[in-house]
Amino acid sequence: MFRQREGSPFRGLAVVALKEAADHMTSMRVHLVMLLILLTALGSVYAAIGQIKETVGEDAFLFLRLFTTAREPLPSFVAFLGFLLPLVAIALGFDSINGEYNRRTLPRVLSQPIYRDALLTGKFVGGLIIIGMCLLVLWLLMTGLGILLLGLPPSGEEVLRGIAYLFAAFAYAGVWLAVALLFSTLFRTPATSALATLTVWLLMTVFWSMLAPLLAGVLAPIDPLDPMTAVHQVEVQQAIARISPNVLYGEMTLGLLHPETRTFGLLFPSQVSQALMGAPLPVSQSLMLIWPQLSSMIAAFLVLFTIAYVSFQRQEIRP
């Protein structure tokens, strides 16, 4: 049956988003996670600068090395973010909808002249605002530290690549926020939804890279007489691995912050016959390289949000 609703679904969206963002800003939980991120970021940059000073003679993209250089025992800044951004997103989102149920605020808020859409989207946008601010602050902090401690300003291309990386990291965190939001609509207990989200996070960050080769071995076994089957298996394995947002994030960082990256897959000698090994790609080419990763990340985020949306629209308001 076709029925048209009157009024805008966006009414109240900005109010909800700003209130959520303000709540996050004052919440102890978010303070703790931010503190953790800030400390690790400072630590990894400091280590990277030490490493750069010791080893690098000439590098056209010295500034980007700040983000990607690791010094034992610390991982690089981007690796840290790949690990911690999901945690921030989960901390922001895991109790957003079921929290309203448990505080019994949902009927009261929904009896105001807004649609449910505004509440869900507003909560999502509120979370994104916080993630965006957190990333921007980190990025500026890194750049500032780099200028101060290395004594060299970033080039225009490095700034461009940095901004592109910022956006990629934002999309990556957005996916995890969508996961957290989805579980917060599916489970009524915040503890359950937090555990479910953390489980998915662990599976994707830690175990997925172990599972992908196993699955590929089952799905595309190697025939010792046909070398192409080996290539096929590698391709299948890569496709499976890319289900994990972490793998996509890793590839995007690689493509953006290591300008000499030409491909993420297998490279045959015929394909690089005329190439200058180690020569950097222009920004536009690097962007084209990571485009599929970025768009699949955004697609994943949209799909997750849609599922959360549908399940929230169908939920009864009574606990």
Binding site: R3, R5, E6, S111, Q112, P113, Y115
Partner: peptide, 10 residues
Amino acid sequence: PLRDPLSVKQ
């Protein structure tokens, strides 16, 4: 209230 929820809730 189904067709015009915002006016009703207002």
